[in-house]
Each structure stands twice: as structure tokens, then as C-alpha cells.
Amino acid sequence: MFLANGVTSANPEQPARIDALRSGAEAAGAVFEAPHDHGIGPIAAIHPAEYLDFLQNIHKRWARMEGASDEVIPNIHPGRHGLSRPDGMVGQAGWHMADTACPIAAHTWEAAYWSAQTALSAAAIAESDGAAYALCRPPGHHAFADMAGGFCFLANAAIAAEALRGRGARVAILDVDVHHGNGTQGIFYDRGDVLTLSIHADPARFYPFFWGHAHERGTGAGEGANLNLPLARRTADEGYFEALDKALARIAAFGADAVVVALGLDAHEDDPFQGLAVTTEDFARMAKRIAGLGLPAVIVQEGGYLQPKLGENLTSFLSGYQDR
């Protein structure tokens, strides 16, 4: 279920996305393999134990409640400033779920766990082979350390970046999804050892609304290690690439020796969310410029919703990356 503007509708994060994306990747020459299980440790390096326990057990607890819905959907969202985490399941759902766009079903934990393992496996391959694409579903960049949101439960890109950092890499996360990667930003906001950058539709009137503004630069040790490049709705072509060039220059100045690309194909002109107007050909241009950094790259799938060119957009990006 998906609630937007007070109206219940079908969730746009549909399983059929996987088929379109896989076909698009294979058209670019990708060969898929099952992810390895790297265990809970790399996930717990980003997400605290009480949140992981919540994700694993909340649906079973919820299902025991008389009259409960099939999916966990909170009806209260605390501001969390100076407040206390409750014991009850309804209160905990509000505590750990930022919005109504992250319903938890019976197999959500399993899906999120293996999505994170997919990103970790791609990170391991990228270290040796130079680049790898992780077909992750559910996505991850709206998940904070202890809070789900926007179809996201575990922060796949952040988990991959932390794994690379733990093995000695200096990592930048470049998010090109149409929506700001607010969870990723929140995870690293007070840290200076991982650079976070996001190019997205201006959140003043676009999800996630409260994060992603240009003045958000990080705090404490992380001051200056976060760069947001919000764009006017329906920005296309040169306006987009001007922002991308700024991001790439910052990555070079940071001295990164690995990059995690949070790849949202929903910046496309025909995506249902209609935030930006990047063309299919632009995804190849985008990929070539990112590849021009000459860094090992983990390309982690984020958004991009069902529309006729979804697979073509991924083909364009991955082909462009290889043609650098």
C-alpha cells in the first residue's frame, strides 16, 4: 500500500522493476551472480542493534494485534527531539518509520537483508575488477541509521561505503536519484571520513522535503563533507551536467580513491515522479563523466520506476560507463 496526498494507491516500488532493470543491465553486457552472505556485521556497522531487531521482528509482533493490517504502517511519527522510544509496537513503528512509504510486510526483512548483501558483494567485486553493479531491491538511500523511509529499510550505499572504508579506502558517495539521499546524508552527517553528495530535485516542494537543501554541509567533524546540489523541477541537459561537474570536482578535491554511485533512474524525463528531465542518452553522458574519475566504483540501484524506458536507461548508463 502507498499513501500520498492522503490517497491510497498502488505502491510504485513494484517487483516488475527487477525484470526491467535486469533486462536493461544484460543488454549492456552485465552478467549476474547471486550475492554472497557477508553476515550481519557490515550492516550493524551502520544500523544499531535495536533497529535491526525491530526490522526482523515487528511484522510478527504486529500480526498478533487484533484487527491489524497486513503490513506495518505507523499512524504516529514523533519529532524525536528529546523524546523516549516506546515499548509498544505501534509506537515503535512510528519511531523507526519516517513515513507511510515504507510498509513492512512478512518478508521485508529478508528482502532488505539480501539487498544489502548485494551491495556488499558488489563492493568486494569493485575492489578487484574496478566496477560492479548491484541490482538492489528494496533501495536504501532514504534509510537512516535507525529509521526506514521512502521504500528503504537498510542503507545499501552507506553499508557498501563503510565496508570499503573499513578496508582502507577513502570513499565518496554520489547520489544521482531524483530524490535527495536523506538517509545517507544523515548517517555520515557528523563524519568527515566519507564524502556524501546528492544531485536531486529541489526538496522545497518535493520528497523528502525536510532534507537536501544546499545549506546542509555537515556538522562537527563532518562539516564540509556533505554537498547538496538541488535543481529546479524538470531541469535537463546542461543544467544537470553543470551540477554533476561540481560534484565530480568535489570528489577529486576530497582525494577519494573509491566511489559509490547511488543510481536512481527516476531522474529521467518520463519517470512517474516527474522531478527532473534527464534523457536516456544523458545517462550515458553521466556515466562517462563519473567513470572519468578513474576510481573503483560500486553502482548501487536506487529508484527508477515502471515506465517504457526504465530498462533502456540502465542500458545507457552501464554502456556509457564501459565506453569511458
Rank of each mutant, 00 (worst) to 15 (best):
125 I>V: 11
192 G>K: 10
244 L>F: 08
60 K>D: 10
5 N>R: 07
58 I>R: 00
194 V>G: 07
273 F>M: 15
215 H>D: 15
245 D>L: 11
231 L>H: 12
141 H>W: 03
25 A>G: 12
76 I>T: 13
79 G>P: 04
152 C>Y: 07
245 D>W: 08
242 E>D: 14
262 A>M: 10
108 T>Y: 01
60 K>V: 01
207 Y>A: 01
16 A>N: 02
101 A>S: 07
204 A>V: 05
116 A>T: 02
321 Y>W: 15
7 V>I: 11
140 G>Y: 05
296 P>Q: 14
308 P>Y: 04
295 L>P: 04
317 F>G: 12
105 A>M: 08
138 P>R: 04
47 H>C: 03
224 G>V: 13
245 D>A: 15
266 D>R: 06
121 S>Q: 06
194 V>L: 12
214 A>Y: 10
283 F>K: 01
239 G>I: 09
319 S>T: 14
23 S>A: 14
197 L>H: 11
252 A>T: 13
109 W>P: 01
188 F>K: 02
64 R>M: 08
2 F>N: 08
135 L>P: 01
181 G>P: 06
31 V>C: 00
81 H>A: 13
82 G>W: 10
261 V>F: 12
140 G>R: 07
306 L>H: 10
244 L>P: 12
87 D>T: 12
159 I>D: 01
43 I>W: 00
102 C>Q: 07
218 G>N: 09
131 A>F: 13
199 I>R: 09
62 W>P: 02
70 D>S: 13
163 A>M: 04
127 E>S: 07
283 F>I: 03
318 L>G: 06
229 L>Q: 03
48 P>V: 04
56 Q>T: 05
316 S>C: 05
163 A>R: 12
236 A>F: 08
201 A>W: 00
4 A>M: 03
145 A>V: 05
247 A>F: 06
233 R>D: 11
70 D>W: 01
275 G>M: 09
210 F>M: 09
121 S>Y: 02
5 N>E: 13
86 P>I: 00
7 V>L: 12
133 Y>N: 03
56 Q>F: 04
243 A>H: 15
248 L>T: 04
195 L>C: 07
58 I>H: 00
295 L>F: 06
84 S>K: 10
311 G>M: 04
102 C>G: 09
271 D>T: 09
230 P>F: 09
102 C>A: 15
250 R>M: 06
255 G>V: 00
205 R>H: 11
251 I>V: 15
189 Y>E: 08
243 A>G: 13
4 A>I: 08
36 H>L: 15
95 W>G: 13
58 I>L: 01
17 R>C: 03
118 T>G: 05
46 I>F: 08
278 V>F: 00
173 I>W: 02
176 V>M: 12
82 G>A: 09
221 A>C: 07
107 H>A: 09
28 A>H: 10
